[in-house]
């Protein structure tokens, strides 16, 4: 068994990944297929190493957007893993998840959802209900439901994910802001604008506090400045353009893709309410931090 040695399998895996990342699929695919043949000859089809190699080949196909072929391989790998590792093994959950992702990429959300749910059940069973990997699975499930317009379920899954991230990783973990953003998007789709607004403000306040310390009269997150600017616009009508920048430049320095998205989203909400100056303040800030 040339490939029985896990180090050899790993080397081959790295080689395949390297070729695939360079777009050299014409090398990566035959390499995988040859390895599969070797493995099957020495270990038989139902061997965990065969399943791993099938997963590697599936990844190469995924990167070529050949989702159907990739899904076929993952189904095969799934059967092997269930047989050899047991139905509740983390490797089974991971394969189910990736299969769900492939179906999702083909728009088959209905088929993907039960796979994702099974992956969730396994992870909860093996890792406990509050493990960050459970939260990640909840995120995928939420997204699949979102694509089917099942917003109540989406809301429930994101809330649970958020609870896990906040309690296990802390309020400043990037996953918290990301999930709040996703939850806010779900609120918007349901017309729950106030709830979305609250979440966006929480994200911006938290990002600000992490960078500049607690909020007080001299240290305010950008959205407070935006609202103050909006409220004082009538008073300023005689005094010319707004010049009192105070310390709010600070808020613009909080830079991350999530914060940037949040600035734009809250800006759009302000605009919807006719709060144009507040919207502009956030939009300016978003374009600067890009």
């Amino acid at each position: 068994g040339r490939l029985r040695d896990p180090a050899r399998l790993r080397t081959l895996h790295n080689l395949v990944i390297q070729y695939a990342s360079q777009g050299r699929y014409e090398v990566a695919v035959p390499l995988c297929k040859q390895a599969l043949e070797d493995l099957e000859k020495t270990s038989g089809h139902d061997h965990p190493d065969v399943a791993t190699m099938l997963n590697i080949l599936a990844l190469v196909y995924r990167d070529q957007n050949k989702y159907k072929e990739a899904a076929h391989l993952l189904n095969d790998a799934l059967a092997i893993r269930e047989k050899t590792l047991g139905k509740d093994h983390p490797a089974v959950a991971a394969t189910l998840n990736n299969l769900a992702v492939l179906y999702g990429k083909r728009g088959k959300y209905k088929e993907a959802e039960p796979l994702c749910k099974r992956a969730l059940e396994i992870r909860e069973k093996v890792l406990g209900k509050f493990h960050p990997d459970v939260a990640k699975q909840l995120n995928n499930l939420a997204l699949l439901c979102q694509n089917q317009g099942k917003y109540e379920e989406v809301e429930y899954y994101y809330r649970r994910a958020l609870e896990i991230y906040e309690s296990k990783l802390g309020a400043d973990d990037p996953n918290v802001a990301k999930t709040k953003n996703n939850l806010a998007t779900c609120y918007l789709k349901q017309g729950k604008f106030k709830d979305a607004e609250t979440l966006y403000k929480e994200i911006l306040t938290r990002a600000h506090e992490k960078e500049f310390g607690s909020v007080n009269n001299d240290n305010k997150p950008i959205w407070m400045h935006a609202e103050e600017r909006e409220e004082s616009k009538d008073k300023r009508r005689d005094a010319g353009p707004y010049v009192e920048y105070g310390s709010w430049y600070k808020a613009c320095k909080v830079d991350s893709p999530t914060v940037n998205t949040t600035l734009k989203s809250l800006g759009a909400l302000y605009r919807r309410q006719g709060k144009l100056e507040a919207a502009e303040t956030l939009e300016e800030c978003a374009s600067k931090s890009r």
């Binding site: 791993t52 983390p90 959950a93 991971a94 394969t95 998840n97 999702g104 918007l188």
Partner: peptide, 20 residues
């Protein structure tokens, strides 16, 4: 803007399938 937000959301692949 909302489109921008949802475009960020993508189903996440689990790379651990390659290490078992």
């Amino acid at each position: 803007d909302q489109q921008g937000a949802s475009r960020q959301q993508q189903l996440e692949w689990d790379d651990s399938t390659l290490t078992y």
